[in-house]
Amino acid sequence: MADELLRVENLNKAYGDQPVLHDINFEVNTGEVLVLLGPSGSGKSTLIRCLNGLEPYQSGDIYFKGDHVTPSSKNWQKLRQKIGMVFQSYDLFPNLKIMDNITLGPIKVQKQAKNVAEKEALALLDSVDLADYAQKYPRELSGGQKQRIAIVRALALHPEFMLFDEVTASLDPEMVRGVLEIMLDLAKQKMTMIVVTHEMNFAHQIANQVLFLEEGRILESTPGAQFFTDPKTDRAKEFLQSMDF
């Protein structure tokens, strides 16, 4: 049996009296890719944001490597350097050069030496073919390039797993592939990932396990290979049809 990296038990979240997540239970093993699917508004993004403490939750427990996560802001701040997260809107810091965007975490949070951090940042940039952009500002880059940088920025902290929240949703179609290829590469290198996406072909390629959510509930949890050919629930079948898969 592989080692469990993350376990979520009975997680509940509401905005006021509007429930958004109901009794969520799942776990992710080291090296595994978990894909969250479901119609928009089903709670996928909220769930993924709960996993690094950006959204508070009312009840339930999260375990990281078997240890219970105390949901305090101080604790989350420490944990976040082990959890890389990439957002839909990439959100590079417009006031910092690409190099400084990438090394901000390693130097300030992890106290790495500047030259070590920069050397590694260059190597990472090179791996996504963007080494020439180190001294430029985010405004000089295209959306796809910014998103690749955002992934590099998260990887520079050597995270133990990565969260991807619809990272291709605001990219032009021709930019999408470059970003997805990086994620497929990461999967090959056995990076543990939790991915929210609307790209069904990509999800099919990358998912070890699929969680299908609707209205804040997990309707089914199915191995990736099976979900796309023979999902357990009718709702998932309808969903796949509506996505033209």
Partner: peptide
Amino acid sequence: SQIESGLALGLSTAQLTRY
């Protein structure tokens, strides 16, 4: 989202304010 992506990098409140 700028503040969230700073938090996601593990920046402390002081670091987030500064950078």
